[in-house]
Design a protein around this nucleic acid. Sequence first.
DNA 1: CGTGTATTTAACCACTAGGTTATTTAACTA
DNA 2: TAGTTAAATAACCTAGTGGTTAAATACACG
Lengths: 133, 133
Amino acid sequence: MVHSEMQTPATDRLSATFAALADPTRRAILARLALGETSVSKLAEPFAMSMPAVSKHLKVLERAGLITRGRDAQMRPCKIEAAPLIGVDGWLTDYRKLWEERLARLDDYLQVLKAEGEAQQNKSKETKRGRKK
Amino acid sequence: MVHSEMQTPATDRLSATFAALADPTRRAILARLALGETSVSKLAEPFAMSMPAVSKHLKVLERAGLITRGRDAQMRPCKIEAAPLIGVDGWLTDYRKLWEERLARLDDYLQVLKAEGEAQQNKSKETKRGRKK
DNA sequence: CGTGTATTTAACCACTAGGTTATTTAACTA
DNA sequence: TAGTTAAATAACCTAGTGGTTAAATACACG
């Protein structure tokens, strides 16, 4: 029962998107591309790294669907694609209430204190440790 | 001549957040924690992996600030933290116009977005050759 | 043709990431 | 004191990532 099976690290779309965005160089490239299509050389200019390194970053972005590449003579103009970002936005939607609720609670703090006995939320409340706040 | 200088992999906050979110197991853990605090064992239950593996995932989430851990007897209840997600939301804001413009132009694009969600479409329409400038 | 330009690919290296099993720490319980 | 439970740490393995330099590919032009 050894570990003869290794799983693919990030095959799904969302994982690929997040992984691609997890690098500051790639995010800078996207920021540049948000202004318009550009060649690879132009993209590489601001960075203190070799062209092959940039080329690899572009490949990661392309495989994540965050950019597409065309052809203009020797140049391969890169264009940003919004679809994966929409995916991130959608994923984030499920968690927005997390901080929006918290802000709302700050506003209604007095009422919360008042309505302490009112049991509207029946989430896991069984761990009764004396946690004073 | 040699390459004895290695760049920081992902020290900044946003990179750490994206890197933490780039794993389906960790996103599942976050989804579970969005419902309320839970112990590590409870978190590990749905996954076909060992506890140390889950523990490592939790450490990644913690270092990204996405969770905090308390203490309740032997258990270390994990709690989701919204701050890094707000950071992602803020970063995304700069790119929202990218697809909102597009939505304004093609309003049936909404249906495409709704219909997909898992489909990886490599549409090769609109590959217009750039011709000479 | 050959030459210059733009970009990718190949081969390599150090380090990281995600998993395992085995061991250790920490806190409750009898 | 020992025993049990919850979780973390240690040591290890394999594959992936981010960078390098050197060579290969693709295209335009004289």
